[in-house]
């Protein structure tokens, strides 16, 4: 391997010392132009939303929403969304759904993944397949019965109904990912603990779970984002404004303030803040997370 990489390295350093614009540099520059153009084009919807959100409604009507430079700068739209728009309540509700849901789904799926990755018994593969197959079901297939079930259990229009379906549905994906990860943990480790007399519960809690921290972190980030952004289950299971989450509150703004796009864009940006923060802070886990364990 060393003699393969070597010529490339020298060739590169020679090119660098010559400082000429060889075909390699030209191609590289071209790639940067293409990538930068795409990246900038990709940001246009977001940037235009930000631009709208910091202007006053009066400025937009008087000078047109895209006049540049803007005749106003304000953060009042964000304040209005947070207070009058009710987003402080929507945020609280969403956190009250997402945090317990993520903790519960990780705990429960780590149990199944632990058993399925450590023990082979009749039907263990079938059970794994059931979990994996379920993770791709279209939500619409579950919608009517889950809606009826929530009514039946008297949890319709409560945050609990959302926690329940989120935890249950994501068991498939989390079990799948954690199972993949746990298989890479050497059997000797758990065997040694067993020989020392540790109970199965202790092996799970004190040996396997701490080792799964990277996978759990990756899953927590992904699931936080997915559940924060859920819309279908909220509009199916929640009716009252008091129990609305961020996505429901957002779509409700359109009816209430039909023409105030400054407020709507501000609220949209607010709604995205937690997931953007989670993404930026945990970027590495986020990207690696989708394939944890499968490539080692």
């Amino acid at each position: 391997m060393a003699d393969i990489t070597l010529p490339r390295a020298t060739e590169q350093s020679v090119a660098k010392t010559r400082r000429s614009l060889g075909p390699r540099q030209l191609k590289r520059a071209l790639l940067h132009v293409i990538l930068a153009t795409i990246a900038i084009a990709w940001m246009i919807p977001l940037v235009s939303a930000i631009y709208t959100s910091v202007r006053t409604f009066a400025d937009g009507t008087a000078n047109g929403p895209w006049s540049f430079p803007p005749h106003s700068f304000t953060l009042q739209n964000f304040v209005d969304a947070w207070t009058d728009g009710g987003f402080s309540g929507y945020f609280l509700n969403t956190f009250l759904v997402v945090i317990p849901a993520v903790i519960l789904m990780l705990l429960l799926s780590s149990m199944t993944a632990f058993v399925l990755s450590r023990y082979r018994f009749r039907g263990s593969r079938l059970l794994l397949m059931l979990f994996i197959a379920g993770l791709l079901l279209p939500f619409q297939v579950l919608l009517i019965p889950v809606y009826r079930l929530s009514n039946f259990l008297n949890i319709y229009d409560t945050l609990g109904s959302l926690v329940a379906i989120h935890v249950a549905f994501e068991l498939g994906f989390c079990t799948f990912v954690l199972h993949n990860f746990m298989r890479t943990i050497p059997k000797d480790l758990t065997d040694a603990a067993a020989v020392d007399g540790a109970s199965v519960f202790r092996i799970w809690w004190q040996v396997v779970l701490p080792l799964c921290r990277p996978a759990l972190a990756a899953l927590a980030t992904l699931e936080f984002t997915w559940k924060w952004n859920d819309y279908l289950w909220v509009i199916t299971l929640i009716q009252s404004t008091n129990n609305a989450t961020v996505t429901l509150g957002l779509s409700g703004l359109r009816g209430e303030f039909v023409t105030n796009w400054n407020l709507i864009t501000a609220a949209s940006l607010l709604a995205a803040v937690p997931t953007v923060i989670v993404y930026l802070v945990l970027q590495r886990q986020f990207l690696g997370g989708l394939f944890v364990g499968s490539n080692k």
Partner: peptide, 10 residues
């Protein structure tokens, strides 16, 4: 990272 309602409104 953005929710679909956010994208939809944008």
């Amino acid at each position: 990272v953005l929710s679909l309602p956010v994208i939809g409104l944008m």
